[in-house]
């Protein structure tokens, strides 16, 4: 059974991963095996089965709309690579 086409470069880009040509080949093969396995599952007729949203049969798990303390500002900023005026500073974003 043939694995569906997999564009390793595209998938790597979506995950923001940089792969060497060797890694592309290696991961491409590994992901191909996984997809082959999924193909096997695809042979089962599930047209009458409603997709499952969650494996645990629980619904309506919510919290009341109440304010609880936030992190102290200093703690919130502790992992920031750079900060200024209370802001996280990141490379300039332009879209």
């Amino acid at each position: 059974m043939a694995a569906p086409n997999l564009d390793v470069k595209y998938v790597a880009h979506l995950a923001r991963l940089q792969l060497t040509p060797e890694e592309e080949k290696k991961f491409g093969e590994q992901l191909g095996h996984i997809l082959e396995h999924i193909e096997k599952l695809n042979q089962l007729d599930v047209s009458s089965v409603e997709p499952t949203a969650h494996a645990v049969p629980l619904v309506n798990v919510t919290r009341r709309d109440e304010v609880t303390p936030s992190l102290p500002h200093e703690d919130a900023m502790r992992n920031a690579p750079a900060k200024r005026d209370g802001l996280f500073i990141v490379p300039k974003i332009v879209e």
Partner: peptide, 21 residues
Amino acid sequence: KSKMWCGCANQYGAEPNTNVC
């Protein structure tokens, strides 16, 4: 009163990064 997934205040105009968790 609070945010969607946590109890931080849903409040405009606070000092930056003070209503965070």
